[in-house]
C-alpha cells in the first residue's frame, strides 16, 4: 500500500492547471521550433522510415493532407487545453495527435531523446478530473483541492524526466559492452568536431576539461533518481544541477533539450503561485490602509496644533 501511495501522492489540482497551460503552449512552440519538419515530410515522404509504433498502429504515410489536418487539430486543441476550459477533451486529442506528430518528425533515421517526458505528460494530464466543486478556467489556477489523481500524473512526469537522465547513463554503459569507458573517452571531442562552434572549438585545446565534464555528467545521471525522494530546497538544488547541465550542453554543442527542461516544472510547487500573489496583494492593501490611517492621524494632529 505504501508503494501504491508513492505513485499517487496528494497534490493540489492547481499544479495540473498550470502545467496544462504551460505544456500545451509549449507544444505549439515545439511544433514550430523543434519538431518542425513534420509538414515538410508530408510534402516529401521520400526518406520516410516508419518507427515501430507507426508500424504497429499501421499509421498512414505522411501526406500534405494528413499532416496539415494534424497541424490544425493540434493548434486548436492546444489553445483550448491551455485555457483549462474543457482541458480533458482537448488533452485526449493533443496526446495522440502530438505523439503522431513527433513520430513522423523522427521517422527519418534519426531519433532524438528529449521528448519522452513531454509526450508522457500529455498522456497523463487528461486523466485528472476537476475537483468536486469543478473549478474550471481561471479558477483552476488557484484550486488547492489535493488529489491523488493529480499526484499520479505529476509523479509520472517526474519519473519520465528522471528516466531521461538515468537511462542515458545506462545507454552509455551498454554501448561500451556494459563497461565504464564513456567518461574517459573522446566523445565530447567527437561531438564538437561534428558541431563546430566557438566555445566548443576553444575547449578542444583542453581535453582534460572535457573529461571532467563527462565524469560530472555521467555521475549526475546515475544519481538522478535520488531527486525523486529529495524534498524542498534539496530537490531544487538537484533540479538546478540538471538545468545547469543543459546550459553547459547548449553552450558547447547547441543541444538544449528544452522539451525535457520544461517538464522539470512538474517538481515545482506551482500551486503556491496564486496564494503567494494573494498574500502579497493583501499585505500591500493592509500596508496602504495603515499608511492612510497614519496619514489621517497626522492630519488630525496638525489640525489640532
Amino acid at each position: 500500500m505504501r508503494l501504491a501511495n508513492w505513485f499517487t501522492p496528494m497534490i493540489a489540482l492547481a499544479r495540473i492547471a498550470w502545467l496544462r497551460t504551460i505544456l500545451y503552449l509549449f507544444v505549439i512552440l515545439d511544433m514550430h521550433a523543434f519538431v518542425r519538419d513534420t509538414r515538410d515530410k508530408g510534402e516529401h515522404p521520400g526518406l520516410y522510415q516508419p518507427l515501430l509504433l507507426a508500424r504497429l498502429l499501421d499509421l498512414p504515410k505522411p501526406s500534405v493532407a494528413n499532416t496539415t489536418v494534424l497541424y490544425v487539430v493540434l493548434i486548436v486543441a492546444c489553445l483550448i487545453g491551455a485555457t483549462n476550459y474543457f482541458p480533458r477533451v482537448a488533452g485526449w486529442i493533443v496526446a495522440p495527435a502530438f505523439t503522431w506528430w513527433v513520430l513522423i518528425g523522427m521517422s527519418d533515421g534519426k531519433v532524438d531523446h528529449d521528448h519522452l517526458a513531454l509526450v508522457i505528460a500529455l498522456w497523463v494530464l487528461p486523466t485528472v478530473k476537476a475537483g468536486r466543486r469543478g473549478r474550471r478556467g481561471l479558477a483552476s489556477y488557484g484550486d488547492q483541492t489535493r488529489s491523488e489523481a493529480a499526484g499520479w500524473a505529476i509523479r509520472c512526469v517526474q519519473i519520465s524526466v528522471i528516466a531521461t537522465y538515468f537511462l542515458s547513463a545506462v545507454a552509455k554503459l551498454r554501448s561500451a559492452g556494459w563497461a565504464l569507458s564513456w567518461p574517459g573517452s573522446a566523445v565530447l571531442t567527437w561531438a564538437i568536431v561534428r558541431r563546430p562552434h566557438p566555445v566548443g572549438e576553444w575547449l578542444l585545446h583542453y581535453p582534460w576539461v572535457l573529461h571532467v565534464m563527462q565524469w560530472v555528467g555521467i555521475i549526475g545521471e546515475f544519481c538522478s533518481p535520488v531527486i525523486l525522494w529529495l524534498k524542498g530546497r534539496w530537490q531544487l538544488f538537484g533540479a538546478l544541477f540538471f538545468i545547469g547541465f543543459h546550459a553547459a550542453n547548449t553552450a558547447i554543442l547547441l543541444i538544449h533539450f528544452l522539451p525535457t527542461v520544461v517538464c522539470w516544472l512538474a517538481f515545482a510547487p506551482l500551486e503556491r503561485v496564486v496564494p503567494w500573489f494573494r498574500q502579497r496583494r493583501s499585505d500591500r492593501d493592509a500596508r496602504e490602509a495603515e499608511d492612510q490611517a497614519e496619514h489621517g492621524r497626522q492630519a488630525e494632529q496638525q489640525a489640532g496644533a
Binding site: L52, L53, M106, V111, L167, S175, S185, A186, V187
Partner: peptide, 27 residues
C-alpha cells in the same frame, strides 16, 4: 534501454552521444 533500439521510440534507449569514442578515432 537494455535491449531495444531507437525504433522503439518513445521507449527506446537514450543513446544520443552514448558511445565511447577511442582516442585514435577517425571522426
Amino acid at each position: 534501454s537494455v535491449r531495444a533500439s531507437d525504433d522503439a521510440w518513445p521507449f527506446g534507449p537514450m543513446s544520443q552521444y552514448a558511445m565511447s569514442v577511442p582516442d585514435d578515432a577517425k571522426i
